[in-house]
Structure formats: structure tokens, C-alpha cells
Simulated assay, not measured.
Amino acid sequence: MLLAGDIGGTKTVMAIFEVERGATTITRHPVQERTFPSQQYQSLELIIEEFLQDCDYPISAASFGVAGPVVGGRAEVTNLPWVIESEALAERFGFGVHLLNDLEAVGTAVPHLERTDLLTLNEGQPVERGAIGVIAPGTGLGEGFLVWQTTGRYEAHPSEGGHCAFGPTTPLQLEMLNYWLPRMGHVSYERVCSGIGIPNIYTFLRETGHYPEPPWLHDALAEVSDQTPVIVKAAVASEADICMATLQLFMEILGDQAGNLALTVLATGGIYLGGGIPPRILPQLQQGPFMEFFRDKGRFSDMMGRIPVHVIVTPKAALYGTAYDALALSPGELAQ
């Protein structure tokens, strides 16, 4: 039995997967699963402890995908005041623990995903064993990539590309950068292309007078701590011009940055969109500006059109990845 965890700034999902015969694959569906609101807990240890109270299975290994950089078995969660250490967790719970970046976890799952786990935005012409890029707008903006190894499989690698400086590609985007630059200092892609970035786009459009804010929307946003779901819901339902414009700008920036990632790692094997936001806006991604901005790379535009682009629609991708990560570890590696 393998304990897998998807640790995010908004929620933490814990699951137990069973190793199928031959110890080369895991069960498609976890034998036990539970979701926790991350910000209501002071540490990951408390969540694991609570989850395992109702667990009758002997855990042989654990792996946790963390929304933040992982260095030397230690992770600081980007949007939570948590510090996670694999050795401390292993000592407390009595089984080996491995930590990996959340996008590294999603990347580890990519080779194991099925067609039903994906929605394709661009079929393209995938190159066998070509590098693969993963970009995931959720609470933050995660990025990662996969490279084919001589061992005959893909290996996932983390990245913090979401914190690179935002580069505008339209006059409106440039205006937004100039609005936020003196207020933030460093304007990263995550600040304008994620769950925490969508309210920043909205605020810019409202405060600069590009779109009025309807009174009902003002009241709705004032009642919630997380404004992103309200804005996205109103945009998808075409209920407010300012929300529709916010989502439009978000998709432009996401398409551009996904294209930047594809160029950076030469992702001829494909680009995969993960995170919690893309599955909520599938029609908009299919019909909106995403692919236009993805392809718009000057002399490389033709090549960009040949790169497959998929949306990961299964919410369990990171869990699959961490379970496969735990499965692949030898006992000597577990506490590293």
C-alpha cells in the first residue's frame, strides 16, 4: 500500500493506492481518499495523522507532491506557512517518505495517463521520445518537464518557471504590467496567470476604468475570501463583461507562457495543461485565444503548430504521479 499526497495552497488530497501484481503498476482508483482544506491546518503532519486514523492498511512507502521547491528532502510550500521535511515525516510515521515538486508529480503521471484523462486542444505531430512540458495554473502557476532517459522511460523534472518575470505581448498586457509593477516590484507570470493572479487581472481592469463593476458582482466578491471562483463562474456564464475580459486576458497570458515553456524545453512530445483552472474553462480554451497566443512565436510559429497540446482533466493526476514515484523508489532512497 502506497500513501500519496497532493499538497496545494488551497487543498491537500491524501490517498492510498494498492500495488497491482508484478509491482509495476498501481490500481487506477485509490482504496481510500480524502481532501483537506490546507489553510485550516498548521502542518502536513496533522493532516497525515488525521487521515491515517481511519486507515487499516499497512503503508509501505509515501510520496508527496508539494506546491513549492523541494531541496534536499525539505520543502517550503509557496502559498502556505508550512515547512515539510521527509526525514522528520519518516521518523514520525514509520515508513519511508519522499518529497517532490507538485509539477514533478504531475509530470511523473503523464506517461501513465489514458485518453479519457485528457482533452486535446491541438493534435499536432508528436515526436517520439521528445521532451514534454507541463504547465498548471491552480492556486499558483506550476511548471515542469519530462525528458526521455536511457533507462527507457520519461523522467520528470521540476521548474519554478511560473515565477519568471511576466513579459507582455499586447498593449493591454503592457498597461497591466505598468499598473502592477510599482505596486508589486516583481510581477511574475504567477501574479497574472493563476488562481491568485485572476483577481489581479480583474482589479487592473476595474481600477483603470476599462470595465465597470456591476453592483451585484461587487457584493458577491465582498462576501468571499477567494474571488477567483466567482470571477471565473461569471465569465463562463457570460454574466459580466469585466469577468469575461479577465478570463480572456488570462487565456492569452497562459497560451503565451505555455508556448514559452514549449520553446524553452523544445517540447516536441507535447504540452500538458494541469492544475484546477483549465478543466473549468474547457469551452473557452477550445474557442478562445489560448492556441493563437501559444502558436504566435514569430519564426517558430510553424513548429509551435506541430506541438500537441492536451488538458489534463482527471483531478487525480498528481496523486497518480506521487504513487508511481513511491513505487519506483528503493528502500535506500525513500528518506532522501
Score class of each variant (00 low, 15 high):
G5I: 01
T10Q: 00
T12F: 11
M14L: 11
R21N: 09
R21W: 09
G22F: 03
T25N: 13
I26N: 04
I26T: 08
R28M: 07
H29R: 10
S38M: 01
Y41M: 04
E45I: 00
I48D: 10
F51D: 09
C55H: 03
D56I: 02
Y57G: 03
A62H: 05
F64W: 12
G65A: 14
A67I: 05
P69S: 14
V71N: 15
V71Q: 15
G73Y: 09
G73K: 09
E76K: 12
L80H: 04
S86C: 15
E87D: 14
A88V: 09
A90P: 06
A90W: 00
R92W: 15
R92Q: 15
F93H: 12
F93R: 11
V97C: 15
N101C: 04
D102E: 12
R115S: 15
R115P: 04
T116L: 07
N122I: 02
A131K: 10
T139P: 05
T139H: 12
L146T: 04
H157L: 07
C164A: 12
Q173A: 07
Q173R: 08
L174F: 11
L181G: 02
M184L: 08
H186L: 00
Y189C: 00
Y189A: 02
Y189I: 01
E190V: 00
V192M: 06
I201R: 11
Y202V: 00
F204H: 03
E207P: 00
Y211T: 03
D219E: 15
I231E: 07
V232W: 06
K233H: 09
K233E: 12
K233C: 03
A235V: 06
S238E: 14
D241P: 04
C243E: 13
L247Q: 15
E252P: 01
E252C: 08
L254W: 13
Q257V: 10
L266H: 12
A267G: 06
I271M: 12
P278L: 11
P278R: 13
I281Q: 13
I281M: 08
P283K: 11
P283N: 15
Q286N: 09
Q287A: 11
Q287S: 14
P289T: 14
F293G: 03
K297A: 08
G298R: 04
R306A: 04
P315T: 07
K316D: 15
A317E: 08
Y320T: 00
T322D: 09
L327G: 05
A335W: 09
